[in-house]
Simulated scan of single mutants.
Amino acid sequence: MRITIFALFLLLTGITDASAKTTADQIEKAASRFLEAFSTQQAEEGYEVTFEAGTVDDRLSLASCEAPLAVEFTGDPWKSTHPSLQVACEGSKPWRMFVTASVSINGPALIAARPLARGERVTSDMLTTQSVVVNASRRGVMRSADDVTGMEVRRPVNRGSVITPDLLAAPDAVERGDHVMITASSGGFSVTSRGKALANASIGEQVLVENLRTARTIRANVVAPGRVEIPM
Protein backbone atom coordinates (compact mmCIF):
# COMPACT_ATOMS: atom_id res chain seq x y z
CA MET A 1 0.00 0.00 0.00
CA ARG A 2 2.84 2.39 0.86
CA ILE A 3 4.47 1.79 -2.56
CA THR A 4 1.16 2.50 -4.29
CA ILE A 5 0.71 5.83 -2.45
CA PHE A 6 4.30 6.82 -3.23
CA ALA A 7 3.79 6.04 -6.92
CA LEU A 8 0.58 8.08 -6.93
CA PHE A 9 2.46 11.04 -5.39
CA LEU A 10 5.03 10.92 -8.20
CA LEU A 11 2.28 10.72 -10.81
CA LEU A 12 0.35 13.69 -9.41
CA THR A 13 3.44 15.89 -9.16
CA GLY A 14 4.48 15.01 -12.71
CA ILE A 15 7.95 13.84 -11.60
CA THR A 16 9.88 11.12 -13.36
CA ASP A 17 13.05 9.37 -12.39
CA ALA A 18 14.85 11.20 -15.19
CA SER A 19 14.04 14.66 -13.80
CA ALA A 20 14.27 13.83 -10.07
CA LYS A 21 17.15 15.73 -8.52
CA THR A 22 15.99 17.14 -5.17
CA THR A 23 16.58 14.39 -2.62
CA ALA A 24 15.06 13.57 0.74
CA ASP A 25 18.36 14.52 2.38
CA GLN A 26 18.24 18.00 0.84
CA ILE A 27 14.67 18.49 2.06
CA GLU A 28 15.55 17.37 5.59
CA LYS A 29 18.54 19.72 5.67
CA ALA A 30 16.42 22.65 4.49
CA ALA A 31 13.90 21.93 7.26
CA SER A 32 16.70 21.71 9.86
CA ARG A 33 18.23 25.01 8.71
CA PHE A 34 14.84 26.69 9.03
CA LEU A 35 14.37 25.34 12.56
CA GLU A 36 17.90 26.40 13.50
CA ALA A 37 17.13 29.95 12.35
CA PHE A 38 13.88 29.90 14.34
CA SER A 39 15.81 28.72 17.41
CA THR A 40 18.35 31.52 17.06
CA GLN A 41 15.63 34.12 16.67
CA GLN A 42 13.78 32.97 19.79
CA ALA A 43 17.03 32.85 21.80
CA GLU A 44 17.26 36.61 21.28
CA GLU A 45 13.87 36.90 23.01
CA GLY A 46 14.94 34.78 25.98
CA TYR A 47 13.58 31.41 24.86
CA GLU A 48 15.48 28.15 24.42
CA VAL A 49 14.30 26.03 21.50
CA THR A 50 15.12 22.36 20.97
CA PHE A 51 14.01 20.77 17.73
CA GLU A 52 14.25 17.82 15.39
CA ALA A 53 13.02 17.73 11.81
CA GLY A 54 11.08 14.65 10.78
CA THR A 55 12.52 12.15 8.33
CA VAL A 56 11.54 12.04 4.67
CA ASP A 57 11.15 8.81 2.70
CA ASP A 58 14.58 8.35 1.13
CA ARG A 59 12.99 7.05 -2.06
CA LEU A 60 11.47 10.46 -2.63
CA SER A 61 13.15 12.48 -5.35
CA LEU A 62 11.63 15.70 -6.66
CA ALA A 63 12.32 18.03 -9.56
CA SER A 64 15.52 20.04 -9.35
CA CYS A 65 15.00 23.49 -7.86
CA GLU A 66 17.20 26.37 -9.04
CA ALA A 67 16.11 28.52 -6.06
CA PRO A 68 16.80 27.75 -2.38
CA LEU A 69 14.04 25.63 -0.89
CA ALA A 70 11.45 27.76 0.95
CA VAL A 71 10.37 26.49 4.37
CA GLU A 72 7.63 27.79 6.66
CA PHE A 73 5.42 26.62 9.51
CA THR A 74 1.92 25.65 8.41
CA GLY A 75 0.58 26.28 11.92
CA ASP A 76 1.50 28.23 15.03
CA PRO A 77 4.62 26.66 16.62
CA TRP A 78 3.72 28.40 19.89
CA LYS A 79 0.62 26.22 20.23
CA SER A 80 2.01 22.80 19.34
CA THR A 81 5.15 20.78 20.07
CA HIS A 82 4.71 18.93 16.76
CA PRO A 83 4.16 21.62 14.13
CA SER A 84 4.17 20.83 10.43
CA LEU A 85 6.57 22.45 7.98
CA GLN A 86 5.91 23.19 4.33
CA VAL A 87 8.96 22.77 2.11
CA ALA A 88 8.48 24.25 -1.35
CA CYS A 89 10.31 24.88 -4.59
CA GLU A 90 9.35 28.21 -6.11
CA GLY A 91 11.40 27.73 -9.29
CA SER A 92 10.34 26.95 -12.86
CA LYS A 93 9.12 23.48 -11.80
CA PRO A 94 7.34 24.30 -8.54
CA TRP A 95 6.36 21.70 -5.97
CA ARG A 96 5.67 21.52 -2.25
CA MET A 97 5.53 18.90 0.44
CA PHE A 98 5.08 18.70 4.20
CA VAL A 99 7.52 17.59 6.87
CA THR A 100 6.70 16.96 10.52
CA ALA A 101 8.89 18.38 13.28
CA SER A 102 9.35 18.17 17.03
CA VAL A 103 9.79 21.61 18.61
CA SER A 104 10.00 22.55 22.30
CA ILE A 105 10.08 26.24 23.24
CA ASN A 106 11.32 26.67 26.80
CA GLY A 107 10.91 29.98 28.58
CA PRO A 108 9.69 31.77 31.71
CA ALA A 109 6.03 31.61 32.66
CA LEU A 110 3.96 32.62 35.67
CA ILE A 111 3.08 29.80 38.09
CA ALA A 112 0.64 29.83 40.98
CA ALA A 113 2.71 30.04 44.19
CA ARG A 114 -0.28 28.85 46.23
CA PRO A 115 -3.82 27.63 45.55
CA LEU A 116 -5.93 30.43 44.04
CA ALA A 117 -9.65 30.64 44.75
CA ARG A 118 -12.29 31.75 42.30
CA GLY A 119 -12.93 35.48 42.56
CA GLU A 120 -9.57 36.38 44.14
CA ARG A 121 -7.77 39.45 42.83
CA VAL A 122 -4.26 38.54 41.72
CA THR A 123 -1.29 40.06 43.55
CA SER A 124 2.40 39.53 42.82
CA ASP A 125 2.95 37.40 45.95
CA MET A 126 0.50 34.80 44.59
CA LEU A 127 2.84 34.12 41.67
CA THR A 128 6.28 32.77 40.92
CA THR A 129 8.20 32.32 37.66
CA GLN A 130 9.49 29.03 36.30
CA SER A 131 10.85 27.79 32.99
CA VAL A 132 8.27 25.67 31.17
CA VAL A 133 7.68 24.25 27.70
CA VAL A 134 5.65 27.21 26.51
CA ASN A 135 4.19 25.60 23.41
CA ALA A 136 2.99 22.56 25.36
CA SER A 137 0.07 24.76 26.48
CA ARG A 138 -2.41 25.40 23.69
CA ARG A 139 -4.00 28.08 25.90
CA GLY A 140 -0.83 30.17 26.08
CA VAL A 141 1.08 31.42 29.12
CA MET A 142 1.58 34.69 30.97
CA ARG A 143 5.09 36.05 31.48
CA SER A 144 4.80 39.29 33.42
CA ALA A 145 3.20 39.77 36.84
CA ASP A 146 2.42 43.35 35.84
CA ASP A 147 0.08 42.02 33.14
CA VAL A 148 -2.07 40.03 35.58
CA THR A 149 -1.93 41.99 38.85
CA GLY A 150 -5.44 43.08 39.74
CA MET A 151 -7.08 40.51 37.45
CA GLU A 152 -9.78 38.23 38.85
CA VAL A 153 -9.37 34.44 39.07
CA ARG A 154 -12.15 32.82 37.06
CA ARG A 155 -11.91 29.31 38.56
CA PRO A 156 -9.82 27.54 41.22
CA VAL A 157 -6.13 27.11 40.38
CA ASN A 158 -3.86 24.55 42.04
CA ARG A 159 -0.48 25.47 43.45
CA GLY A 160 2.19 24.97 40.78
CA SER A 161 -0.21 25.34 37.84
CA VAL A 162 0.77 27.47 34.86
CA ILE A 163 -1.21 30.70 34.69
CA THR A 164 -2.96 30.81 31.31
CA PRO A 165 -4.99 33.75 29.95
CA ASP A 166 -8.30 31.88 30.19
CA LEU A 167 -7.88 31.51 33.98
CA LEU A 168 -8.14 35.27 34.50
CA ALA A 169 -10.68 37.96 33.75
CA ALA A 170 -10.61 41.73 33.94
CA PRO A 171 -12.38 42.81 37.14
CA ASP A 172 -15.61 44.77 36.92
CA ALA A 173 -14.92 48.49 36.85
CA VAL A 174 -18.57 49.22 37.63
CA GLU A 175 -21.15 47.08 39.38
CA ARG A 176 -24.94 47.13 39.24
CA GLY A 177 -26.24 49.97 41.40
CA ASP A 178 -22.95 51.91 41.42
CA HIS A 179 -23.14 55.65 40.90
CA VAL A 180 -21.00 56.59 37.92
CA MET A 181 -19.87 59.73 36.16
CA ILE A 182 -21.24 59.96 32.60
CA THR A 183 -19.25 61.94 30.04
CA ALA A 184 -20.58 62.85 26.61
CA SER A 185 -17.91 64.40 24.42
CA SER A 186 -17.58 65.68 20.87
CA GLY A 187 -14.34 67.24 19.69
CA GLY A 188 -13.11 69.55 22.45
CA PHE A 189 -16.58 69.90 24.04
CA SER A 190 -17.83 67.60 26.80
CA VAL A 191 -20.75 67.39 29.22
CA THR A 192 -20.81 65.38 32.42
CA SER A 193 -23.66 64.12 34.55
CA ARG A 194 -24.26 61.52 37.21
CA GLY A 195 -25.81 58.14 36.58
CA LYS A 196 -26.42 54.66 38.00
CA ALA A 197 -25.08 51.47 36.44
CA LEU A 198 -27.74 48.87 35.67
CA ALA A 199 -25.29 45.97 35.27
CA ASN A 200 -21.72 44.90 35.96
CA ALA A 201 -19.06 45.67 33.34
CA SER A 202 -15.29 45.86 32.99
CA ILE A 203 -13.20 48.47 31.20
CA GLY A 204 -13.84 48.39 27.46
CA GLU A 205 -17.31 46.86 27.78
CA GLN A 206 -20.65 48.57 27.28
CA VAL A 207 -23.17 48.95 30.07
CA LEU A 208 -26.67 50.34 30.48
CA VAL A 209 -26.72 53.42 32.70
CA GLU A 210 -29.63 55.45 34.07
CA ASN A 211 -29.05 59.21 33.88
CA LEU A 212 -30.09 60.41 37.34
CA ARG A 213 -31.00 63.89 36.07
CA THR A 214 -33.18 62.88 33.13
CA ALA A 215 -34.16 59.33 34.23
CA ARG A 216 -33.27 58.14 30.72
CA THR A 217 -31.51 54.82 30.17
CA ILE A 218 -28.49 55.02 27.89
CA ARG A 219 -25.77 52.68 26.67
CA ALA A 220 -22.23 53.82 27.51
CA ASN A 221 -18.66 52.55 27.32
CA VAL A 222 -16.81 51.86 30.59
CA VAL A 223 -13.52 53.79 30.45
CA ALA A 224 -12.37 53.61 34.09
CA PRO A 225 -13.66 52.51 37.50
CA GLY A 226 -16.80 54.57 38.12
CA ARG A 227 -16.60 56.36 34.74
CA VAL A 228 -18.50 55.79 31.52
CA GLU A 229 -18.48 57.63 28.22
CA ILE A 230 -21.07 58.22 25.50
CA PRO A 231 -19.55 58.70 22.03
CA MET A 232 -21.11 61.54 20.03
Rank of each mutant, 00 (worst) to 15 (best):
R2K: 01
I3G: 03
A224K: 02
R33S: 10
N106L: 08
G119D: 05
S202T: 03
I105R: 03
Q130H: 15
R96D: 08
S102P: 02
V191M: 14
A220D: 03
D57V: 10
P165N: 12
V87E: 06
S144K: 08
P77F: 02
G160A: 10
A67Y: 06
P77S: 03
S64T: 08
N106R: 10
H179Q: 11
F73K: 09
P165M: 15
A224T: 03
H82S: 11
T4H: 14
T123Q: 15
E90S: 10
T81W: 14
D178Q: 08
R118M: 14
V222F: 04
T16H: 05
S32R: 12
K196C: 04
R59D: 14
L116V: 15
I3S: 15
I182A: 13
T123P: 02
G91I: 05
A215L: 05
A43V: 02
V223T: 14
Q86I: 14
N106P: 00
S92D: 12
S202V: 03
N200L: 04
V71Y: 09
L69R: 09
P231Y: 15
H82V: 06
S104E: 13
V191F: 11
E210N: 12
C65P: 10
E205H: 07
A70K: 08
G160I: 11
R219D: 01
S124D: 13
L198K: 01
R121I: 03
I218Y: 02
L35A: 10
P225V: 08
F51I: 06
A18D: 10
S186A: 13
S190C: 00
A201P: 01
R96L: 11
A145M: 04
I15F: 03
A30H: 07
N135T: 00
N211P: 01
G195E: 01
N211W: 00
M181T: 13
V180D: 11
T4A: 13
N106V: 07
R139S: 09
M181F: 12
R2T: 02
A31S: 14
S61V: 00
V223W: 12
